[in-house]
């Protein structure tokens, strides 16, 4: 069990998302940064797609009346456990009556907490993800508030030795994000100059960025003859360009269909980096082939598998070293 003392700016329960209902207009939702959330689950000893807490920009403060084990991955929100600094991208034991507290993100934008055993909220349409716009899923269909009590799932014998993600797998969050893009389906509706702008110029993340999409300011991307199309399907990663020429990259909570021409799709593995971008950060796009995209997906999967192997061969069965010892890298 975990009591919310301070919820932070926007903290929601998310898992891998609510797939299977896009034909009915149901957005997928789910974690914005799949990589950080998955690594948090693996380090915590969970299934890779278990429900986690997603904190945005300003983290929360949580109280644990009983012992637990959890992992924190993603943006560095200067987390502390009972006043002592915690290691980001690691999992650790939390004794009973502890307080876990976070501040502002000093790099990146979103941080994930995975509790050993996952989060006990009811599945709605096959997912625990919160979709706040329709008030569905997660914790009562909304972001967490002070005094909410989150039930942590029951699992087998709790690990206690700390684990840290191997430095090989640590992403670097800078102020410049490079995103790989597969052109289409409507790249033919843009001028040669428009396409060139997309792939040669630098864009700026605007303050209008949320779980639905990230609006990019700066250069404009020119259409050949108008931005409107007969609405068709889209998903996270789609780069819609409305009439003003400023691209919008659709994110986890995006609608399932849209009426603006889509010049391309940011590949799935790169969306994690965009999820960690803040207003003012710069974004560049580079064209990408199917082969490169599939290789990136395979590399992402391999990183998860390697980490999972490290965790399962870790000092789980060894003598408990509650809180004291240095983290074992996995």
């Amino acid at each position: 069990m975990c009591t919310v003392i301070k919820p932070g700016m926007l903290t929601t329960v998310q898992d891998r998302g609510r797939t299977g209902y896009r034909a009915f207009g149901m957005p997928v939702s789910g974690v914005m940064d799949r990589y950080a959330a998955t690594m948090a689950n693996i380090l915590a000893g969970n299934e890779p797609g278990a429900a986690v807490l997603e904190m945005t920009m300003l983290g929360g403060t949580f109280r644990f009346p009983s012992e637990t084990y959890l992992a924190v991955c993603g943006a560095d929100m200067q987390g502390t456990l009972n006043g002592k600094k915690i290691q980001n991208w690691s999992a650790f034991y939390v004794p009973a009556n502890s307080e876990l507290s976070f501040g502002y993100a000093v790099n990146g934008c979103r941080s994930y907490i995975a509790f050993y055993g996952g989060i006990e909220v009811p599945e709605v349409m096959g997912s625990r993800s919160t979709y706040t716009r329709a008030g569905i899923g997660g914790f009562d269909g909304r972001a967490l508030k002070a005094d909410d009590v989150i039930e942590i799932g029951k699992a087998g014998e709790m690990p206690c030795a700390p684990r840290a993600l191997s430095y090989h797998h640590l992403p670097k969050y800078g102020n410049e994000v490079r995103l790989r893009v597969i052109p289409g389906p409507q790249d033919g509706l843009f001028t040669a100059e428009g396409l060139q702008s997309l792939f040669s110029k630098s864009f700026t993340v605007s303050s209008r960025n949320d779980r639905m999409g990230v609006l990019l300011e700066g250069p404009t991307v020119e259409h050949a003859s108008g931005a409107d199309i007969i609405s068709d399907a889209l998903s996270a990663g789609a780069i819609q360009v409305p009439g003003d020429g400023h691209p919008i990259v659709m994110m986890a909570d995006c609608q399932t269909t849209g009426g603006y021409a889509k010049i391309g799709f940011v590949i799935g593995p790169d969306l994690s980096r965009l999820a960690q971008a803040k207003a003012g950060d710069s974004v560049t796009f580079v064209e990408c082939s199917d082969q490169e995209a599939v290789a990136a997906l395979a590399a992402e999967k391999a990183a998860y598998e390697k980490t999972a192997v490290g965790v399962s061969h870790g000092p789980l069965g060894g003598a408990p070293v509650k809180g004291a010892a240095a983290s074992k890298e996995v």
């Binding site: 389906p185 789609a238 889509k262 799709f265 799935g268 995209a293």
Partner: peptide, 29 residues
């Protein structure tokens, strides 16, 4: 048949809103 990211394919039957075209979309689905 066009690309929509690394995990999407769009089967496009034409640039019109028309009952017959839409019926073909649903038949394929």
């Amino acid at each position: 048949i066009v690309k929509a990211g690394e995990q999407g394919v769009v089967v496009d039957f034409g640039d019109v809103i028309e009952p017959g075209v839409n019926a073909r979309v649903h038949r394929l689905a």
